[in-house]
């Protein structure tokens, strides 16, 4: 699905300075776009607004043909059809891997659920780990479970919040290429937030550079990062 953001401005309660100021971004279907910036630049806030986890923004956000934020509309996060991988994955510690992946599939029959969980485990190469708890997995494996969980309901778009920040630097290189393969296979519009140029170079088709809440550049990776 394509994503359209128009004149998006956001203030945190009690702050006079906007966390995001007049942001305009358009993303094509199937594109992988990175939101790049230093900490405090507003990149995670932008992601949370697209997800619907923050709701006090003004402006417009459209996902596909669905206006999820506008002057008179706000669609709850659970109704947006958006998948998200959190910075620390947020895998439910009381559920095994397969239960975690099946959590977003409540509308499917038991048979359909099993089939979809199996597909997702294959996609992320974690079939032998279906019956493990999250704490029994390595950081990289946890990230893949989080990705499988977010992709399982076939979301219109996928949001990734600092996907590599919890991994050791050696592992980051390996996981980047794995993630790229998975995203290409899943063919899903993806927005990921990062402060690392290498992440952008390895994964993104285009990049939006944020600075102090404003969009300062948007374009092809090498152009925008230069």
């Amino acid at each position: 699905m394509n994503i359209k953001i128009e004149k998006l401005t956001f203030y945190y309660p009690g702050n006079k300075k906007p966390a995001l100021k007049d942001i305009n971004i358009e993303i094509e279907e199937g594109e992988i776009v990175s939101i790049f910036g230093e900490s405090g630049s507003g990149k995670s806030t932008l992601l949370r607004l697209i997800a619907g986890l923050e709701h006090k923004g003004s402006g417009v956000i459209e996902i596909g043909k669905n206006r999820v934020l506008g002057p008179n509309s706000f669609v709850l996060p659970e109704k947006r059809g958006v998948g998200m991988v959190f910075q620390d994955y947020a895998l439910f510690p009381n559920m095994k891997v397969e239960k975690n992946i099946a959590f977003g599939l409540s509308k499917m029959s038991i048979g359909e659920k099993k089939k979809r969980v199996k597909e997702m485990l294959e996609l992320v190469n974690l079939e032998p780990y279906a019956n493990k708890y999250p704490y029994e997995l390595s950081g990289g494996q946890q990230q893949r479970v989080a990705l499988a969980r977010a992709l399982a309901p076939a979301p219109g778009c996928l949001l990734l919040d600092e996907p590599f920040s919890n991994l050791d630097s050696d592992l980051q290189v390996k996981i980047r290429s794995e993630l790229k393969d998975i995203l290409l296979k899943a063919q899903v519009t993806t927005i990921f937030v990062t402060h690392d140029r290498e992440d952008v170079r390895a994964l993104a088709d285009r990049v939006a550079v944020l600075k102090e809440g404003s969009l300062v550049k948007m374009g092809k990776v090498e152009e925008a990062l230069s």
Binding site: A51, G52, L53, L76, P77, E78, K79, V82, G83, M84, F86, D88, A90, F92, N94, F103, G104, S106, K107, R149, A150, P153
Partner: peptide, 23 residues
């Protein structure tokens, strides 16, 4: 984070409370 993750996976306030928060 778990609350937000549950909501992103399509669960409403009540379902998130009973399936995630309460356990």
């Amino acid at each position: 984070k778990y609350h937000d993750a549950s909501k992103m996976l399509g669960h409403g306030e009540v379902s998130t409370f009973f399936k995630i928060d309460l356990p």
